[in-house]
Amino acid sequence: MTEQLKPHLDLALRHTRAGEATTAIPRLEIAMGSATSGTSPCLYRSMICFILQGSKQVALRDDLLRYDSAHYLVSALDLPLSGQIHDGADGSPYVAVSLVLDPALLADIASTMASLREDEMPGSSIAINAMTPPVRDALLRLLAMLDTPADIPVLAPMAERELLYRLLQGPQGRLLRQIARPEGALGKIRRAVEWIRDHHDMRLRIEALCDVSGMSRASLHRHFVALTGLSPIQYQKQIRLQAARQLLLAGDHSASDVAFSVGYESASQFSREYLRQFGAPPVRDVRLFRQSIGVSGIN
């Protein structure tokens, strides 16, 4: 952790606990956890992530990205990735703050800024950039609202706008502006991704993705793979397995019930793919996960 982020960390620690938690500020979340021994699948939403303590590395295709408190990460899409977190240098826990992006708000802010001529297709849907004093100061003003919850309805939207404005001014401003452009390639793939997430329990119909994105089959496949690292079918499988894990962690369903609820027609196929994804069969994986965070009572 850099010394400049100590006020941010103090605020975050006052308003979180082990695991991931929403906050009183819309779309703002705080995560705290211990180092993991290896990489594990995770789902990144369309968001900005600021690490306050520790570090993390994520893999998208063959690209391995590592960031810490001196950097922030921009994810333009909901992306199934592999990640590994690391504690701070003194063994202190990993702490991060994320802000889920609102495309309409980004578009509104971008419309007030000088227009730029840019290529339609971004080079990547995920990027890391060095933290700057203006971004750091704007983030602190947003986090400070957690100490004065009565101020949140009026002041938090202003602080969020300032933070997004500073990010739009930075090197990843181009990627953020692409999020705000529904007619661009990124905007079209975002719609396809949202359709898959909303219908992950149904048989994937490429025609439906073409309709919702406004792209041809060839264009959809090319841009989808370029931005997510996966084909639409592979992406759906990842989303299904992530959804299944969440249901199993809730503890209310058997593995076979969960398999059918997320769209699998075969419980045995589900178990095989779950094992490949998470490194253990469903029931054992959930038991190990709960033991790691001190939760018992697994059936």
Rank of each mutant, 00 (worst) to 15 (best):
T2E: 13
L5V: 06
P7S: 07
L9S: 05
L9I: 07
D10A: 09
D10T: 11
L11A: 09
L11V: 07
L13G: 11
R14V: 00
H15I: 08
T16E: 01
A18G: 11
A18M: 15
I25G: 00
I25P: 01
P26T: 00
R27M: 05
E29W: 08
E29F: 13
I30R: 02
G33V: 01
A35M: 08
A35N: 04
R45H: 15
M47F: 12
I48R: 08
C49D: 12
F50V: 05
L52A: 00
G54L: 02
L60S: 09
D63W: 11
R66S: 12
R66C: 11
S69G: 06
S69N: 04
L73G: 09
S75W: 04
A76K: 02
A76L: 01
D78C: 14
G83Y: 09
H86E: 11
D87P: 10
G88D: 01
G91Y: 00
S92W: 09
V97E: 01
S98E: 07
L101F: 05
A104F: 12
T112R: 14
S115N: 14
S115V: 14
S115G: 13
L116E: 15
E118H: 11
D119W: 10
M121F: 12
M121H: 14
S124W: 12
I126C: 04
A127M: 12
I128W: 14
N129D: 13
M131K: 02
P133E: 06
V135T: 03
D137Y: 04
L139T: 07
L140Y: 06
R141S: 08
R141I: 04
R141A: 09
L143F: 01
L143W: 00
L143P: 02
T148R: 00
P149N: 03
P149H: 01
A150R: 00
D151M: 00
I152N: 00
R161Y: 13
E162F: 13
E162I: 10
L164V: 05
R166A: 06
R166T: 11
R166D: 14
L168Y: 04
G173H: 01
L175A: 10
A180W: 00
R181E: 15
E183C: 09
R191G: 04
W195V: 10
H199I: 01
D201I: 11
D201L: 11
M202I: 14
M202V: 15
L204F: 01
L204I: 02
I206Y: 15
I206K: 10
A208K: 14
A208P: 11
R217C: 07
R217Y: 08
L220G: 04
R222T: 06
H223V: 09
V225H: 05
L227R: 03
T228H: 01
G229N: 04
P232F: 01
A243E: 09
A243G: 07
A244S: 06
R245L: 10
R245D: 04
G251F: 00
S256V: 10
S256T: 13
D257S: 15
D257V: 12
V258W: 02
Y264T: 04
Y264K: 02
A267N: 09
A267L: 10
S268M: 14
S268I: 15
R272H: 13
R272S: 10
Q277P: 12
F278Y: 05
G279Y: 06
A280Q: 08
P281C: 03
P282G: 01
V283F: 15
V283W: 12
R290W: 07
Q291F: 10
Q291L: 13
V295F: 09
V295H: 05
G297P: 03
